[in-house]
Every structure is written in structure tokens, then in C-alpha cells.
Write a protein that binds this DNA or RNA. Structure first.
Lengths: 247, 247
DNA sequence: ATGTTTAAGAACGATAATGATTGATTTCTA
DNA sequence: TAGAAATCAATCATTATCGTTCTTAAACAT
């Protein structure tokens, strides 16, 4: 198989899959790791993709650049699992709140076809949701530049007037005594309100956020169900304090 | 087999296959590698294909020529002029309303560096505005899929609580007796409210919208200043009814 | 018949691509 | 936090491909 053909193949795969492992490509293309690695490096040099430990990631449009530390394929795929599990919890006729952030953003494709209404404070989320033909209500208010999240008093007041069956939140810290925490005070306020307005709340996090404490407290540990990928032994005791789902 | 025949054969194959290996051609044509290589080199010199290591690749299309005919390009440029003039009207400390739609979207780059607050009901607008580091408030509410505009009762109510120094609106129809009109009833309602809440309102339109009437009425002809590119003689009489700026 | 021209194949050193190996680095797991 | 496992970049020998040159053979002109 010609070098060029491999390159096209790799890019095609990335269109559909977001992340690829080197091993995956070795099997599908029948070439050695060395060759695949060389291909990936070349394509990265051409700015066609981003190399990450274990494989490669689709290059993002300059828009929803979350500048996250998505440094390994494994990390990405675990994260994807969390989003998938969360989306699985959504039923027809739910009115859900979708918090801004990349993890909740990843849920959206899995919501396709569900007969639901989504309220969100994420600007990119709103755009994608409507692309998937999902009834979307955007929370109004001031926009934070880095995360493109709607925050501030206007937003808070607007949330007062609505109620959700389920809320799906991103979070920076999850700790038994400090509860759920996040760095930005204003974002914390919005998150807090969304959780209070929701019948049932879920916090989506990868393991790196467990046992972490960030600046601003959002809620107590028992107010939300945690959805994550895999708990270490030490983290198992979180289960004594709140509901946990493992993807 | 004649040289010319081989050449046509190779090009035919490329129509279907995108890439060819030298070996492949050696087998199908029953000639030596040397000959095939000579063929490929010749064809490359004639710009009929691209040589790659191991074979050849179909020549890429002249990279998505802007295919727009001159008329369209000119049209776009006129539109750009309108946006530019509108942006020129914005001063420091203004609190402006930016209606959803492409014409107002085009204003954004020209707002760079101004010390202003922008309220908008356009989701893409909000994203771009924050990229330009402009203080942005997004109106909350239901999102219309096609235009990514925020509309509906929630949005209307939110507009009740704010006031603007200037509002910049897109519009589908401008007519002396019917005033300003647009196809979607809900969008019309939002536009109407924004205009009422604004000290001064501008409607950005290209000539094709003049003397047009759409379904839903937004405002009377004298409520807004029209910003457009060039008026035909017949359209000059609009000036008797409202203020007009020509870009 | 002889020399010229042209296309083709063969030969070969140069260059490029590949896959295996290795030791360093990163990530994972206990 | 230490050791194991996975992944990495760098290197090297092997193989594939390339461009060039040389040779042969047929077509054609003189």
C-alpha cells in the first residue's frame, strides 16, 4: 500500500473516530508500528492531526479549542466512555441541563434521536445540539471568553425559572470533605443553581479529578451522583458518601 | 502497445482508482518498469497526474476554486461595505444590540478594540465576539436551528430588562408602506423588542431587500435608519420616509 | 545496404521506505 | 512512590523504488 493511501486512510478514520491508537492502525493497515508512527508524525507536521501518547487525535477547529490536557489516547477514550454512559441515562421527555465544558460536550452525539429538551450554558453546546436537531434552550448572560460558558447574574436569575429532570455537570474537583469544587467563582454559582433546580444531578469526571480540591465550592458530596471511569482502591471509599457510577 | 495507448490507459485507471502503483501497471500493461516510469514522468510533465514514491496519484482539483461568479463576489463586497459602515457608527462605551444573521456577523471584525458591551441573540456571533475580546451578553432562550438565532418568549422577556444605545438589525424586507418585515414570526417579535429597547436602531440590508415585503412586520419604516449600499432612482423616494445611509 | 531515429528493456548505483531492535521516556498500577 | 508495562524516538539493515545510462531492435531515410 502506498504511503499516500495510508495517509488518506488515517485521516478518513479520524473524521469518524476522534481518536486512533497506533495499534488499531497497525492492525487495519497491516504495517509495522514504525511505519504508522512515521505516518502520524508526518501528518502532524502537515497540521492534519495532533499526536498524543498512544496514537493521534483529530485536529480541532480553532473554535471549540478547550486547550485541555488530552495527552493520551487512553485518557480520551475513557472520557468518551463517561460521556456515553451519561447520555445513556437520558430518556425521552426528559428536560436536561447540560453544563458547559468538554465532557458534557462529548455527550451530545449520543443524544441524537432522543425526544428531549436541553438547557445549556455552553455556547458551542447550543450550536451542536441544534445541529443534531435537539430542542435547545440557551441560558442568557455574560460569556466567559476562555470556556465560552454563559455565567453571571442574568444567567442565574434565568435558571430560577426553570426545572430539570436531570442535570449533567462538569467539575474540577471531587473530594469527600470539600464536596464538588471548580476554579471560577461565577461558574460555581451557575453550577450550584443548576444542581438545585434539578431533580437528579450527575457529575461527569475522569479519575484525575477525584480527590482533588479546587477553589470554589459548588455542592456537597452527597448532592450529585458521580459518573467516572475507574476507581482506585483508595477512591472506593467515596462510595460511602455518594452514589457512583463506573463506565 | 503504442505509447499513447498506454498513456490513455493509465489516465483512465486513475479516474477510477485515485492511486496506482508502478507494479500494478507493469502487470496490467505487460511492459517493463522502466517504460512505466517513463510514462508516469511524461504524464507528470504534462500535469496530468502527480508522481509519488511507488506510483502515481490523481491530480487534485484546483483546490475548491471560489466558483462564485464575479457578480457574487461583488455582491459580497457590497455587503461587507455595509457592515463596515455600521461598525464605524459604534463608539466607546456604547451598549449595542447585534441581531442574528450574516450581515451583522460581518460587523464583528470591525468592532475589534472598541470598548463596548454587545448584547446579541446570535449564537455564532457570541462565540466570535468573545474571540475578539469584546464584552458579550447572550440573550437566553430557544434556539432556531437554521439560523442559530435565540428566539421565543424567554428571550423576549430578557430583553425587557435591558436598554441599548444602538441596535443593528438584519432584515428581509424594507418597504415604504409595509415597513420592515421578516419571514419568521418569532424572530420578528425579538427584533421588534430589540428596536423598542434601543435609543437608535439601524437596519443593515443590501439593495435586494429594498422594496421587498416579507411575512411578519417588525417596525414602521420611520423607526430605523437604513444602512445599504446603493439606491436606484426609484428607491430614492425612501428618503422621504426614513433616514438612509449609503455605504 | 547503411546510418539515423526512436522506443523499449536491462543494469546499476543512489535514494527512499520499511520493519526490527534498542534504550529512553512516559504512563500505569499496585 | 517504585516497579512494570506501554509507548516513544533513534538507529540500522533490508528491501523497494528511482533516475540514469547503456544496449537492443525496429522503423525509416538515404
Amino acid at each position: 500500500m502506498l504511503t499516500d493511501e495510508r495517509h488518506s486512510f488515517i485521516l478518513e478514520q479520524l473524521e469518524q473516530k476522534n481518536t486512533l491508537t497506533v495499534q488499531e492502525l497497525v492492525e487495519k493497515l497491516g504495517h509495522s508500528e514504525s511505519t504508522i508512527r512515521r505516518d502520524l508524525t508526518t501528518l502532524e507536521d502537515q497540521d492534519k492531526l495532533v499526536r498524543i501518547h498512544g496514537g493521534a487525535r483529530k485536529k480541532r477547529k480553532p473554535v471549540d479549542e478547550p486547550t485541555m490536557d488530552e495527552k493520551t489516547v487512553k485518557f480520551m477514550q475513557e472520557k468518551e466512555k463517561v460521556s456515553q454512559l451519561a447520555a445513556y441515562l437520558v430518556n425521552d421527555f426528559d428536560v436536561i441541563y447540560l453544563d458547559a465544558g468538554t465532557t458534557t460536550y462529548a455527550m451530545i452525539p449520543y443524544l441524537e434521536g432522543k425526544n428531549i429538551t436541553v438547557v445549556t450554558n455552553g455556547v458551542p453546546h447550543a450550536a451542536l445540539l441544534t445541529d443534531y436537531n435537539i430542542e435547545t434552550i440557551l441560558v442568557g448572560g455574560k460569556i466567559k471568553q476562555r470556556t465560552k460558558a454563559v455565567i453571571g447574574s442574568i444567567a442565574e436569575r434565568q435558571l430560577d425559572e426553570v426545572n430539570f429532570t436531570k442535570a449533567f455537570m462538569g467539575m474540577n474537583g471531587v473530594d469527600i470533605t470539600q464536596g464538588f469544587t471548580t476554579p471560577d467563582t461565577e461558574e460555581a454559582a451557575i453550577k450550584r443553581k443548576a444542581i438545585r433546580q434539578s431533580n437528579q444531578s450527575y457529575v461527569l469526571v475522569d479519575v484525575s479529578k477525584l480527590d482533588e480540591v479546587s477553589f470554589s465550592k459548588v455542592a456537597d458530596i452527597d448532592e450529585c451522583t458521580v459518573i467516572t471511569n475507574h476507581l482506585s482502591d483508595k477512591q472506593q471509599r467515596l462510595k460511602d458518601y455518594t452514589r457512583i457510577m463506573e463506565a
